[in-house]
Write a protein that binds this DNA or RNA. Structure first.
Lengths: 133, 133
DNA sequence: GTTACTGCAAAGCTTTTGCATCCCT
DNA sequence: AGGGATGCAAAAGCTTTGCAGTAAC
């Protein structure tokens, strides 16, 4: 918990619960996933607090918002540069930690200042492939 | 217009207007962009018709839905496999037509059936770079 | 004691849906 | 003529916001 104390933000019980839930989480939860989970411990918890905290963490650079699902936003506590593999059927999102050194050809880039990239791989996961067909 | 006739869908004036608006369009419009534009010609036009038509075109494979902007969905009539470059400030979306032959390493992929990928490059466009700082 | 956070409720947007009417084929 | 499309309005989700009360520092 010491690390949280050093964050320089007010540590309320709700925030602590969110931080602990996100710590090492690889499920890429949505705001609702987080809300539903934390609500078990704090039944009076509100959505505003979830979004509020997510916003704070995003601004601090401790959380990344994923634009991968048109239905809702997902959040990733792993702020290292990485990519994602998504199942078109069950929507499960997996991390792909690998550096693909891709670059836009000079003639297309022009003076556009490219800061980074994110690759979304998509397909059918093993589990869905077995069920389906 | 003959090509539209061959599509095998009912060609109403509204649909024709949407098809013509999308033809060769490289702006990656949102449903609202399309609605607002077509409404100039057809003031009685409804949102339902826009979404309805977009859905039909998507199903036919004549339109791609882009999950690039968390605020809203964007649509791309260019169905060839390509990538995008987005300005973090003005949100303008540019096409990147180039084949980056990237693949997930075998050990990470496992039996996941990867069908494709989409790369989102992001940064600051020339125009915003000049204004901003 | 301050300041920032919480909870609640309402509002804002985007997207979807139900249904009667209309019109393309 | 028939079936699919349209328009309208209401509803459904996700996300944001205003505000009074409260708790962390």
């Amino acid at each position: 918990m010491q690390k949280y104390r050093d964050m320089g933000i007010k540590l309320t019980p709700q925030r602590l619960a969110i931080l602990e839930y996100l710590e090492g989480n690889e499920d890429h939860p949505s705001a609702d996933d987080i809300y539903t989970e934390i609500k078990k411990k704090f039944p009076m918890m509100s959505f505003a607090t979830v979004y509020n905290t997510l916003e704070t963490l995003k601004k601090r650079g401790d959380l990344v918002e994923l634009t991968i699902d048109p239905e809702r936003r997902h959040y990733d506590p792993d702020t290292r540069h990485h990519h994602h593999l998504i199942c078109r059927k069950c929507k499960k999102i997996l991390d792909i930690h690998r550096d693909f050194s891709i670059e836009i050809p000079e003639d297309q880039k022009g003076t556009f200042e490219v800061l980074g990239n994110h690759i979304e791989f998509y397909g059918i996961c093993p589990s869905c492939k077995m069920k389906g067909e």
